[in-house]
């Protein structure tokens, strides 16, 4: 596929584009979407995904520039390379969208998520949960005689792994923020 000259959401100069554009392989991408923080903007972005049948695996939104009224929406999505390209160009068409970055292809990026885990139990299990939490550098943010609430931050995979370990130890409730991501380096 030759390079597309697309300003918004452009990823065109990446070697990534050398992969076949119409392959069937499902890929997971993290997109950072910079938008004007105005009413309805999140509905526009989400409506695009639901209306065109794209997947949302994770979504985080918050204002990042109060004076400029800019928000950053981080979406983790899956699709074939062609669908991913479509998602980016379709997002770029939305009027209040300023920029679309595909952090998965634009070089290295850091991804972090915060999770809160409520684990109940007594005796051995309770001690084991606490021990594992220490290994994962999770903090205890609430505790009763028969429960803990752990707070953990890290890459989504780390949080997945922590959830897997806690499940047999009495995990009863999970809250996750979704992914926040930034590209590495000064650019």
């Amino acid at each position: 596929m030759a390079a597309l000259k697309i300003k918004k959401g452009s990823t065109s100069h990446s070697a990534y584009n050398l992969r076949p554009a119409f392959s069937d392989v499902q890929e997971k991408h993290t997109l950072a979407v910079l938008v004007d923080n105005e009413p309805g903007v999140l509905a526009r972005v989400i409506g695009l995904f639901s209306g065109r049948g794209y997947n949302i695996e994770s979504l985080t939104v918050a204002e990042v520039d109060h004076t400029g009224h800019h928000s950053r929406i981080t979406v983790v999505t899956t699709g074939t390379p062609q669908v991913i390209e479509q998602i980016k160009t379709q997002l770029g068409r939305i009027v209040p969208v300023h920029d679309v970055h595909d952090l998965t292809v634009e070089g290295a990026a850091v991804e972090r998520e915060l999770g809160l885990f409520k684990v109940t139990g007594e005796g051995e299990k309770r001690i084991e949960a606490l021990r594992l939490a220490e290994i994962f550098r999770a903090n205890v943010v609430d505790s009763t005689l028969e429960s803990f609430v752990f707070e953990i931050t890290g890459a989504p995979e780390k949080i997945d792994a922590f959830a897997d370990l806690m499940r047999p130890l009495g995990l009863v409730e999970v809250a996750r923020t979704g992914v926040a991501a930034l590209s590495r380096g000064s650019a």
Partner: peptide, 18 residues
């Protein structure tokens, strides 16, 4: 003029947005 029209249904060899 619409980048999302390109490669939407048919693979394009020479895309020109404008």
């Amino acid at each position: 003029i619409d980048p999302s029209s390109i490669n939407k249904v048919v693979k394009t060899d020479i895309p020109i947005v404008g």
